[in-house]
Amino acid sequence: MTVPLLEIKNLHAAVADKEIIKGLNLTINKGEVHAIMGPNGAGKSSLSYVLSGKNGYNVTKGSVSFSGEDLLSLSTEERAQKGLFLSMQYPTEIPGVVVTNFLKQSVNAIRKAHKEPELDSLEFLKILKSEATKLNISQEMLKRFVNVGFSGGEKKRFETLQIALLKPSFCILDEIDSGLDVDAQKIVSEGINQLRNKDNSFLIITHHEKLLSDIVPDFVHIFADGKILKSGDKTLAHIVETNGYTQFLKEE
């Protein structure tokens, strides 16, 4: 039997002493695309932070393994270097750090961890230019400070650009569709579909069925009150879209 890419067992986690993840089980195999849907405040973003090792999101019980390795014992940067990527719901603005420099540092940090030679400025800029063009990101934006003054949609396209450059094996997309106009959502979905292959997996957090018709998931999970209430295929997303979450909450 092959080792699952991600295996979450009975996960409990707290933020500021408040339990938010309350006994979560989820297994994601290589090449699979999973979607999580759930009401506001259910703990979806918190789950993504727990998986990325953000300070303050404390695991109180349970285990998470990533390619068979204990994910929870790794630092945030080690998780990223091993292929985990979190596209954030609200990407952080970093005044004073220029986009190009940030991306180069990041790409080379990942390459270094993979024992690949680091890219020099010229090589890097060539790759950056071609990926940015595909996502309709202007050269001007690359000279700006990270996320500073980016529109909501630009922030999401910039997150997608990072995925294209870093080529992670496991991506958590936390509401990557929020703030995107119709055309931008198409560009972003296409970008992600291109990265989809038998080795890469995705966990898509969204409120909208539309995204899941563009990036069709293998599984859909209904997430509320810190755990998964129901799992199924893409038809679940349609039920949510039409009837909301009430029925799942009742079933519980």
Partner: peptide, 21 residues
Amino acid sequence: FYLTSRGIDKNIATKMLIDAH
């Protein structure tokens, strides 16, 4: 967190933020 979640080592990320200041 944003910088380290992109694989950048914590001490390098800290340095970047100091320079940014």
